[in-house]
Simulated scan of single mutants.
Amino acid sequence: MKIAFVTNIIAPYTHAVFEAVCKSPEDRLQVLCCSDNEPSRAWNVPPPSNYSVVILEGMRLHRSYTQHIYLNPGVWSALSAFDPDVVFINAFSPTMVIAAAWARIHRRPYCVTTDGWKLTDPGEWSRIHRLFRRLLVPRAAFGLGAGELSLELLESYGLPRSRLLKLPIVSSVPRPTSYSSVTERPFDLLWCGNIDDERKGVYFFCRVVEKLKLLQGTLRVRVAGNGELREWLQDRLADLGVEFQFDGYLQAQDLASFYNSGRLFLFPSRGDPWGLVVNEAMSAGTPTIASSKSASGLELSKRSGGVICLDLDEDKWVEAAYRLLQNSDHWKSLSAANIQLAEQFTVEEPAANLLRAAQEATRAAAR
């Protein structure tokens, strides 16, 4: 069976899943990318071993560092050249509409995948985005979502539960060879991600830091990432008398030690489709406070006591953080819960579900 997967770009975590999909020599996977990279993405993705890649020519409308609209007419000829048995589309841009149209005309099934949910889905407020989703989703053979909230979104656009599967996002950050204890971790708080306020909530983060500093007297903060507010954050932490370390953008192999160096990871997202950094922190046994506007915060907090999900209320975050930083037994309990849950997130599940969707879609189309 030949599987085509059309996506914006390849990320380290999707690369790991793609590598694990084709276990049989009779199966082939080709990933068709709208671009080789995107602004503010600096991932070092290894070359593929078990799948092939085609970088499509085309146009990109850059709306923000996380929002891009692609038009790659060449996806039609690329699909014709590969002639897949099933097509996966991993977004709802014009390129994906062309790919779905190719599948329909050539009588091949297509499946849709998403990590979105109602809070972050543009279809909730944009007519054109809603039109594309209503055009693509109900006609899909299967829908695959990062979690329960993603499945609910696909269901709202017309896919029944019987044609939905989970495609969990799995961290590509290697787990540490040993987990540092609370006393071995030199930093109190960690920040990882783009340094902005519109989406990541850096101003909220700083207000929490300020209040914790008043309670504790001393505070050490480590920051990984870049963004428009990096200099502001450095100046603000210095003004507060907080000890800090800025690492800039770190690759996956360096993030393991980063998360293993902090007692608490804060993720005050103002709206994330998933929020993979919560998985990354969890893999290092690092307790996490995540915003209720991140899908990972909402879903993982139901499965692990080591992920605390709160609304963006400063006092609640300060209370939860202070208790954790002051109570080593409480910290150990949350850390152990995260380690236990992280062990359940492996590439085998999303790879198996992707292959299952491909197999069942092609079987149904052959009837």
Rank of each mutant, 00 (worst) to 15 (best):
N8K: 11
T14C: 00
V17C: 11
A20K: 12
V21D: 02
C22I: 05
K23D: 08
K23N: 11
P25Q: 03
S35P: 06
N37A: 14
S40G: 03
S40T: 15
N44G: 02
Y51E: 03
V54A: 08
V54R: 13
E57I: 04
L61I: 15
R63G: 14
Y65V: 15
S77G: 14
S77F: 13
L79H: 04
S80W: 14
A81I: 08
D85K: 11
F88Y: 15
F92G: 10
S93Q: 13
A101F: 13
W117Q: 05
P122M: 03
H129K: 09
R130T: 03
L131D: 05
F142D: 02
L144E: 03
E152Q: 10
L153T: 02
E155T: 11
G158R: 10
P160I: 10
L167D: 09
S171T: 13
S172I: 02
R175T: 06
R175A: 13
T183K: 15
E184G: 11
E184C: 08
F187Q: 03
D197K: 10
E198V: 12
V209P: 00
G225W: 01
N226P: 06
Q234D: 14
L237E: 05
D239W: 08
D247W: 09
G248M: 03
G248N: 05
Y249V: 15
Q251H: 12
Q251A: 08
S257V: 08
F258G: 04
L264S: 09
I289E: 01
A295C: 08
S296N: 01
G297E: 06
G297I: 01
K302Y: 02
R303Y: 04
R303Q: 14
S304Q: 06
V307Q: 00
C309H: 04
L310E: 00
D311T: 08
E314A: 10
R323N: 13
L324W: 07
D329W: 10
S335W: 07
A336K: 15
T346S: 10
V347T: 14
A352H: 08
L354M: 12
L354N: 04
L354A: 05
L355I: 02
Q359L: 12
E360M: 13
E360D: 09
R367Y: 10
